[in-house]
Amino acid sequence: MYFDSLEALLYMDGHGGFVWAAYAITLVVIVALLIAPRRRQKKLLAQLAGELRRERGAPSHSPTAVEGDTHASGS
């Protein structure tokens, strides 16, 4: 360990602000890089799951209605 204390580490002989700012910005960008695709994927899957549930949940109600509709228009 090069620094004696936490303060010395944070201060870094006057360069602390620059060094820590650079690392903080990098951290933010890396986190954003890794989180963005994960969030997109989650959203997409949830959306698809919702669609599927609607399709599967629907058969008891709407498909019959649709069938009835086509019948009505056909006859």
Partner: peptide, 21 residues
């Protein structure tokens, strides 16, 4: 890079940015 390396003799501690730059 931040804690266990000694500072550059010319640039001091600011050179530690090299590890991400």
């Amino acid at each position: 890079g931040l804690l266990y390396t000694s500072p550059d003799f010319r640039q001091g501690n600011s050179y530690r940015i090299i590890y991400i730059h």
